[in-house]
Design a protein around this nucleic acid. Structure first.
Lengths: 331, 331
DNA sequence: ATCAGCGCCTGAAACGTTTCAGTTCATGAT
DNA sequence: ATCATGAACTGAAACGTTTCAGGCGCTGAT
């Protein structure tokens, strides 16, 4: 592997000069600079980032750890974060915990060992051992899609309680009295909050609430939940799902069983991913500003790493209901 | 930031011993080991990967650069690659070029500077300046979802010509004589190959072929293409799309315009992403073994980095047609 | 003639590890 | 008593950069 030394020797200058050519070209004479540049080209020299980083004491990388890259919502979050990071000349590396605490721990450890500039974190649980260990490493971090006390760290989230309530209220208003809520794993705060929103919106109403917990937050878990739903009696007339992937799975199970949507079963999803609008029956969904979430979180992190005196913030966005055919009352 | 020196001083041993505790615990006496471990715990010491890597001369990271993380196909590829990398104790960092050559170049440069163990690459074009520069860096790489001459590098791909032909033949066999092909950007070899497959399958048949080039390979480009398709006259009776995202977009445009699927318009997609089966009308699609693609590519790369004498391979998988309602002939 | 100032360049230290040749010390064999 | 052995640990070199104090030679001012 060709290093700065080889370039220096070949160009007949000191390594300091080569370094200057690469990092502060203006301080070296034009003739020398060109000579060095052509040697760099000739030898195919690529500077070694680990040496650079060792010397500098910090890296030019930001970490992003999301719950599930299979969910387009998080892909959008990643896009937003990437945008903000690039604007600041940082590269971002995206990792996928898949909601597994062991993977989460291993990626957090990797981030700490890499001495990344900071981490955007969408954690499985805020109380885990992994997170505690990570905190000790002193790497700055910001929660994404998760509220957190500002005493600990900044966070950028969407009000999931309001979101859940939004969906439930919509179903009430469209006349439903037997409502199911297909939730994801209760370890996730997002799921607990959405459920709480649903409960509070339905409290005091005449509606009867059935809650199903799906194994995961993906389409196939949704299919399973849909099958279970088909077996319940009396069958609910509407179902709200903790995210769009679940809703798409439920939808598929319903359509497969010949249940008409929305006449026999209304469906509401959450996240408003692009596929929701392109579904069998376009899905009513609770929209979250995914890209903005990522961008804002990255900006907050950058601000905190640039100036450690800056105070933690808890940004909360408000979700928005997008009504489509899956709950539209047709006459 | 606490380093190995701090630990050594505090534990009353040399830094060499601390390093041994971390890397070869068996060579240090139990009493010493425990003392050092407790100091590590107490001080929250995390080893610095960049120093480690500088010394070792190589990193424990593998790079993966994909065309579009918004496409679930590539998410599956990433999953497969991650699996294989983890099995070998490597971490993988996934980057998204979004089909932009400038981003591709910047990520490739980053990979080279990071001295990653190797790169899995799904390039925008095999002939670009960025790729040429990257080759010079000497970082080993394997093409994913792209054939390449074995003289240059290994590759793992799916036979796109066969895939295109598979779809076209299916449409011929289900009686269609006016067929449209909605293709993505022609820079992508995948798109060119699929088109070639379509052409060769239809050559000599009585079918008339219309080709539309979409701007991108995403749902909204599909919607646009669908709208254009609606305006053509005589309107084709079937459309094959270069990937499922396009197909979902086309489907949405058709359904929105009241066109019945498959009676008035049959649709075939490509990739068989999970959303294809959960679509408005479940999509017939050409299935690619995405996870296997990623896994195989990572394994190949690992084999090559472990033993440089190993020969390049070009693995080609065969796609498979999955027939669903969007082309099913109903009576 | 001297010297300050400047532009350009050099040389060496420092970053935090890993590794390896050595040192020390106790043990058991001779 | 001597010595070889081996276990446990030490000390220093090396990895490839960046940075910075300083050196050298030239120019223009005094």
């Amino acid at each position: 592997m060709v290093g700065i030394k080889d370039v220096a020797k070949r160009a007949g200058v000191s390594i300091g000069t080569v370094s200057n050519v690469v990092n502060r070209p203006h301080v070296v004479a034009v003739a020398t600079r060109n000579r060095v540049l052509s040697v760099i080209e000739e030898l195919g020299y690529v500077r070694d980032e680990s040496a650079r980083q060792l010397r500098a004491g910090r890296s030019r990388i930001m970490g992003l750890l999301v719950l599930d890259l299979g969910n387009p919502f998080f892909v959008d979050v990643a896009r937003g974060a990437e945008q903000a990071a690039h604007a600041d000349g940082l590269n971002i590396i995206t990792c996928n915990s898949g909601q597994r605490s062991d993977l989460e721990a291993s990626y957090l450890a990797m981030f700490a060992e890499q001495r990344v500039r900071g981490v955007l974190l969408s954690p499985v649980a805020t109380s885990g051992e992994a997170l505690r260990a990570f905190r000790r490493s002193g790497t700055p971090y910001v929660f994404v899609d998760r509220k957190a006390p500002t005493s600990e760290a900044s966070s950028v989230a969407v009000d999931d309680i309001a979101g859940g309530a939004l969906a439930a209220r919509h179903l009430l208003e469209t006349g439903h009295r037997r409502i199911a809520f297909v939730n994801g794993p209760a370890i996730l705060a997002q799921c607990r909050d959405r459920e709480q929103g649903v409960r509070s919106a339905l409290a005091g109403s005449a509606a009867e609430l059935t809650i199903l917990e799906a194994i995961g937050l993906d389409v196939s878990s949704g299919r399973d939940a849909g099958a279970r739903l088909l077996g319940t009696s009396p069958r609910p007339t509407a179902v709200f799902c903790a995210n769009d992937l679940l809703a798409l799975g439920v939808l598929q199970a319903m359509v497969g069983a010949g249940v008409r949507i929305p006449e026999e079963m209304a469906i509401v999803g959450y996240d408003d991913i692009e596929f929701a609008g392109a579904a069998a029956v376009p899905l009513t969904s609770v929209r979250q500003p995914a890209q903005r979430l990522g961008r804002t979180a990255a900006e907050l992190l950058l601000a905190e790493t640039a100036d450690t005196t800056v105070e933690h913030q808890a940004v909360v966005f408000t979700p928005e209901l997008v009504v489509r055919e899956s709950t539209r009352v047709r006459r």
